[in-house]
């Protein structure tokens, strides 16, 4: 603060002190009457993003035991044990994921031909012992229905956006070709500044 001399400065300092305290107190009391943003963790959980990668969920009845995910896993944390009976019936023993190692890269879910393994929305991995972090997805019931639905919706959304992006790309390509036919390729390209990009259509960026 700049130096203030004399009695007028004294009064102004005093006024500043009182006034700024009042302003500050006004701000804190306003916060006092707002709702707390705390989430009571074990009972209620924070809503995660739709494409959050949490503990996996296996749609067992769809799975054909092709072991693609096991092979795709870069850190080898998936272990699958089953017995294939004649007639395509699989007797499952184990489909376990070692969450001590898993880094939630989603590389197991992408190649799945039946897309029956998903990254769920459960993120709490508090256990008393490390061995308890090896979860058998056949018996683990951590996934809620709503999670499954949200995942489905998110995936549909992803597909829809990918389709949209593809359509737009096709349209642009067609436009570009049309422009190229007119023999003036510079102008339309100039319009494609990053600021004009549609914020919703992020799919084409990946």
């Amino acid at each position: 603060m700049n130096r203030r001399d004399g009695f007028a400065g004294w009064v102004r300092n005093l006024w500043d002190g009182v006034f700024s305290t009042m302003v500050g107190m006004g701000i804190t009391i306003r916060y006092f009457f707002t709702k707390p943003v705390t989430v009571q963790f074990p009972e209620e959980k924070m809503e995660v993003a739709p494409r959050y990668r949490g503990i996996h969920y296996l749609e067992q009845d769809l799975c054909i035991a092709c072991r693609v995910c096991e092979k795709a896993c870069p850190i080898d944390c998936i272990e699958i044990r089953f017995k294939r009976h004649p007639g395509g019936v699989n007797e499952w023993f184990e489909f376990s994921l070692d969450y001590n190692k898993c880094m939630f890269c989603e590389l197991c879910c992408i190649p799945c031909p039946k897309s029956c393994i998903h990254e769920g929305r459960e993120y709490s991995m508090v256990r008393y012992d490390r061995s308890e972090l090896v979860l058998d997805l056949l018996t683990w019931k951590g996934m809620r229905e709503v999670d499954l639905r949200t995942i489905k919706e998110a995936e549909e959304e992803k597909k829809r956006k990918a389709a949209e992006a593809a359509a737009r790309r096709a349209a642009e390509k067609a436009k570009k070709e049309a422009a190229a036919k007119e023999g003036d390729p510079g102008k339309p390209r100039k319009k494609e500044t990053p600021g004009k990009r549609d914020p919703e259509g992020g799919g084409d960026e990946r």
């Binding site: 804190t28 009391i29 916060y31 006092f32 009457f33 707002t34 709702k35 707390p36 943003v37 705390t38 009571q40």
Partner: peptide, 10 residues
């Protein structure tokens, strides 16, 4: 409690 509410905690 009061300090919690002033920081939007519980």
């Amino acid at each position: 409690r009061v300090s919690g509410r002033m920081q939007q905690r519980r």
